[in-house]
């Protein structure tokens, strides 16, 4: 097994040697300071972005909340109006009297119209029949009477026979 890892160990040793050869004075101090400044800017920028996103979300929810409230208010108002129409509490006493008076007037008018119609009908019936009509009428009566007498005769014959 030891031999199996020889290649690996050799490779690792080579890497180490290469690393040592390339060892140089490198300073990350300035780079780090610059990077932190950049990071700071990125951090502020990202925070600002997050803030805007949150604000948008809050505004959307507020909007939804107000729309909901407004709808609720509308519904309540409609229900309230229906209730008021039924109970009519908003109509003042004066208006009530006026309405009553109008109703009364209307009913009086109706009554008057009815009365007029009745009177007209009565007038129609109470008028005497014209001469032509009376003649026609008597003729009709006579016809009926004649028929009636014939029927009576038939009955008499049958009874005799």
């Amino acid at each position: 097994m030891k031999n199996d890892f020889e290649k690996i160990e050799k490779g690792l040793r080579l890497l180490k040697e290469e690393g040592r050869k390339m060892m140089r004075d490198i300073s990350f101090f300035d780079k780090f300071l610059n990077a932190t400044e950049k990071e700071k800017f990125v951090f502020i920028y990202s925070k600002w972005n997050y803030f805007l996103v949150y604000l948008t979300i809050v505004l959307v929810f507020l909007n939804l909340f107000f729309i909901h409230k407004l709808n609720l208010h509308k519904e309540n108002m409609v229900a309230f109006n229906y209730r008021n129409i039924e109970n009519q509490p908003l109509i003042t006493e004066k208006e009530k009297i006026e309405i009553k008076y109008i109703k009364k007037q209307n009913s009086n008018k109706e009554k008057l119209v009815e009365k007029n119609i009745r009177e007209e009908k009565l007038e129609e019936f109470s008028q005497p029949l014209k001469l032509e009509e009376t003649i026609k009428f008597t003729e009709e009566i006579n016809k009926l009477l004649r028929l009636f007498t014939i029927n009576l005769n038939i009955e008499g014959n049958n009874g005799e026979g």
Binding site: K7, I8, K10, G11, L12, L14, L15
Partner: peptide, 8 residues
């Protein structure tokens, strides 16, 4: 050797 280093 280079190949070994690269792979490692």
């Amino acid at each position: 050797d280079e190949e070994l280093k690269e792979k490692l």
